[in-house]
């Protein structure tokens, strides 16, 4: 049932899938732990919002835009000295998580900011009128009201992270995409490449389905 070529390369494929999990997993962590707060801060510093601060907003906005507009392959190469400085090496899966985390923070923070913009202004106003602190407003109002959009944004981001991870072979980061290029494309095993692409497509479809299902389930508005 399983094609011979997949059986033949199964151990390499499992290792590659593991590497992709590491790359994408760290990216998701960075997105949640850093991207979410940055996106929230971007939103709150906008004109007319609670922490309105033109300087902070413009500075953060510029950084996020710069990172996001950088062609990812060039970003990975451009920050090699920085990666070496932070991680001790610029080569390998662990080192490759750094550029993944950087793009993840920028990518998700922008989507978070946009998700929060959809929260009705009246809800924020009600929160302020109740004497809520900034922390209360974020956790008891903003994230509650935007939770479905935040989940959908994370779904979109995760799919992008999988896409970004496929080029991490350039710094020895491995991953399923790198496997498809090295074993499929470069060794003229087109069938192997197609099977790997199918594996990636299945992953992406599953993530998309899970994201949409969860977002729908938690959206009570």
């Amino acid at each position: 049932m399983i094609p011979d070529v997949l059986v033949e390369y199964q151990s390499e494929i499992w290792v590659s899938i593991g590497e992709t999990f590491v790359l994408v997993g760290f990216a998701i962590l960075a997105a949640l732990l850093v991207g979410l707060p940055i996106g929230t801060f971007l939103f709150l510093c906008r004109k007319g919002q609670l922490l309105e601060n033109q300087f902070v907003f413009s500075s953060l906005n510029l950084i996020v835009n710069l990172i996001r507009s950088f062609p990812f392959l060039l970003l990975v190469i451009f920050i090699i000295p920085f990666t070496r400085f932070v991680m001790g090496t610029a080569i390998g899966t662990v080192a490759a998580t750094l550029p993944m985390m950087i793009i993840a923070m920028a990518h998700y923070s922008r989507l978070v900011e946009q998700s929060l913009l959809d929260v009705p202004k009246g809800v924020m106003e009600a929160a302020v009128s109740m004497g809520a602190s900034i922390k209360d407003i974020i956790f008891k109002f903003l994230y509650v009201e935007a939770r479905s959009a935040l989940v959908l944004s994370m779904t979109t981001s995760t799919i992008s992270f999988i896409s970004y991870s496929t080029i991490m072979g350039v710094v020895g980061g491995g991953g399923i995409g790198d496997f498809a290029i090295r074993y499929g494309y470069q060794q003229f095993r087109t069938d192997l490449m197609i099977y790997v692409i199918i594996i990636i497509l299945v992953f992406v479809q599953f993530i998309q389905y899970a994201g949409i299902t969860l977002a729908r389930k938690i959206d009570k508005r």
């Binding site: 009705p120 009246g122 004497g131 009201e145």
Partner: peptide, 21 residues
């Protein structure tokens, strides 16, 4: 001021309820 606001409750034209609660 936040504390004072808790004793001055407000009702709005658009209700301003949290839809997910």
């Amino acid at each position: 001021i936040r504390h004072i606001r808790q004793s001055l409750a407000m009702v709005f034209q658009g209700y301003n309820l949290v839809g997910n609660k």
